[in-house]
């Protein structure tokens, strides 16, 4: 505790680094996964076989990207892109790739989970394609997407600390530094702060879900149609 107070400035700086980098990766990953996942979902429903194969291909690429272990990806990416290892940009790209890889499949799954009967009924009421996509399909897929966004958020915050091994500064720096100095307090502080960041992110996601989808709790509680 004394150590933490004495090094307040350092901790604030590292936490801030951790927060903004992971927030950018999570949001960017989601922003990319939404259109691509939607494309995979739509292509999968196409009557044309090549389109359905393309859809499967997109999802498989997501799955393969996801299989690549984090530290190797972190060192390979900068070399591929001609960036220095220390670059924050390369870790942002690496973690965005993971966030995208997890989200893209669950966006497609979420859209598929919307009951066809509700979509049919919306069409029968006279929704145009675009209206239906934006005001019926998207919100109804929301809860499943939200659940996967929570997984992405936790894993991104936790994975980011690996970046410390290549020299990027964030809460992970407390682990490498603490280990080299044989100083457990520093490591423990780092773990606690990382978990707190993960919890705060999770709380923000859950709260925005409740705000944006007030019906989702009721629907779950009531068992739905």
């Amino acid at each position: 505790m004394n150590w933490a107070l004495a090094n307040r400035d350092l901790l604030v700086e590292l936490t801030w680094q951790h927060v903004w980098v992971s927030a950018v990766c999570i949001l960017l990953g989601f922003a990319l996964a939404l259109p691509v996942g939607w494309f995979a979902y739509a292509a999968n429903r196409s009557p044309r076989r090549p389109m359905r194969q393309l859809s499967g291909g997109v999802l498989s690429i997501g799955s393969i990207l996801y299989t690549i272990p984090s530290l190797p990806l972190l060192v390979i990416l900068p070399s591929l892109l001609g960036l220095p290892w220390l670059s924050v940009l390369s870790i942002v790209i690496a973690l965005t790739v993971y966030a995208f890889a997890i989200m893209v499949r669950s966006v497609a799954d979420a859209l598929r989970s919307v009951p066809p009967m509700v979509l049919d009924s919306a069409t029968a009421c006279g929704y145009s394609r675009t209206q239906r996509a934006l005001t019926v399909t998207l919100p109804l897929a929301g809860p499943v997407m939200l659940a996967s966004l929570r997984v992405v958020s936790v894993s991104t915050v936790s994975l980011l600390s690996i970046g410390a091994l290549t020299g990027v500064r964030n809460l992970g720096s407390l682990f490498t530094n603490g280990y080299n100095r044989d100083f457990t307090t520093e490591i423990a502080t780092g773990i606690v702060l990382t978990v707190i960041v993960a919890l705060v992110f999770d709380a923000i996601i859950v709260a925005s879900g409740r705000l944006l989808m007030p019906w989702s709790r009721v629907v779950r509680a009531g068992g739905g149609e």
Binding site: P115, M117, V118, D120, S121, A122, A124, V136, P139, L140, M213, W215, S216, V219, G224, E225
Partner: peptide, 8 residues
């Protein structure tokens, strides 16, 4: 099943 929109 009425086909009502569950989020409205």
């Amino acid at each position: 099943h009425a086909g009502l929109l569950p989020h409205r």
